[in-house]
Computed example of a mutant assay.
Amino acid sequence: MGAGKSTLGRHLSQILERPFYDSDRVIEEKTGADIPWIFDVEGESGFRRREHEAIDELTSMPGIVLATGGGVVTTPENLALMHDRGCVVYLWTPVEVQLARTRNDRNRPLLQTADPQAKLEALFAERDPLYRKVAHHVVSTASGNLKKVADDVLACLVSRGQG
């Protein structure tokens, strides 16, 4: 959360002249409901089921740039789909930076708690090893410099023959 996946994804899609998809937006378009509403009505498990369906569909599309929700790695089937069908770049971001970037965002159901920092720390502890397992490359977004991060990601893609 707060790593800049969507912002960077849109930027890279322009540079690479490839279509951009955000899996959370795809889910919202298909359901006609926003992510917080899906969490409220169906719970996290209902959302994760919808997310897996979207990931299966999107990773089947060639030549796209895809930004996923932060919890996509908590579904083991998603790990295999993403790793086998694309080039996964883990946008590593320290918790303090995530907290600063998400502090006023009310569209993040998992952070609507009394202690968002503790929640981010717990999510990081759970998800960081999963991202490292699935990722072909790890790139830090801590600097907040979009051009630098994009250049780092493009270098990763070139090294895999995908840039």
Rank of each mutant, 00 (worst) to 15 (best):
P19C: 05
R48S: 06
V149L: 06
T141W: 08
E57L: 15
T113Q: 12
R103P: 03
M1E: 06
K5G: 14
T68L: 02
Q98P: 03
A122V: 03
R18G: 02
V153R: 05
K133A: 15
L111V: 08
L58V: 10
Y90F: 15
S60E: 13
P129I: 02
L99V: 03
L120P: 00
D128W: 00
I55N: 10
R127E: 02
G4V: 01
G163R: 09
W92I: 00
R48C: 08
S45I: 07
P116E: 07
A33E: 14
A142W: 08
G2R: 07
Q117D: 05
S60K: 10
S13C: 01
A80Q: 14
A80P: 02
G46F: 11
A135C: 08
A142H: 04
Q117S: 07
Q162P: 00
F47D: 11
L66F: 09
G2H: 08
L154V: 04
L146A: 12
Q14G: 11
S45H: 14
L154P: 13
S60H: 14
G69L: 05
V158M: 13
V134L: 11
H11C: 05
A3R: 03
D105T: 12
E51W: 13
V134Q: 08
V73P: 05
K148P: 01
D115G: 11
N104Q: 13
W37A: 13
M61L: 14
G43R: 03
D152H: 12
H52P: 03
K30R: 15
S13R: 01
H11D: 12
H11M: 02
A122S: 15
A100Q: 09
A150N: 07
R132T: 05
T59I: 06
L130G: 04
S23Q: 11
E42H: 15
L154G: 12
A122M: 11
E126H: 09
Q14M: 10
D128N: 13
E17S: 15
L12R: 08
V88C: 10
S6W: 01
R103N: 09
A155R: 14
R25A: 15
V88F: 00
K148H: 13
R18D: 04
I55Y: 09
R48H: 05
V139P: 07
R108D: 04
V153L: 03
V72E: 00
L12N: 04
L8E: 07
V95R: 02
K5Q: 06
C156K: 09
G163E: 09
V65W: 01
V95K: 06
N145M: 04
Q14V: 06
D84S: 14
V153H: 12
R25T: 07
G46W: 13
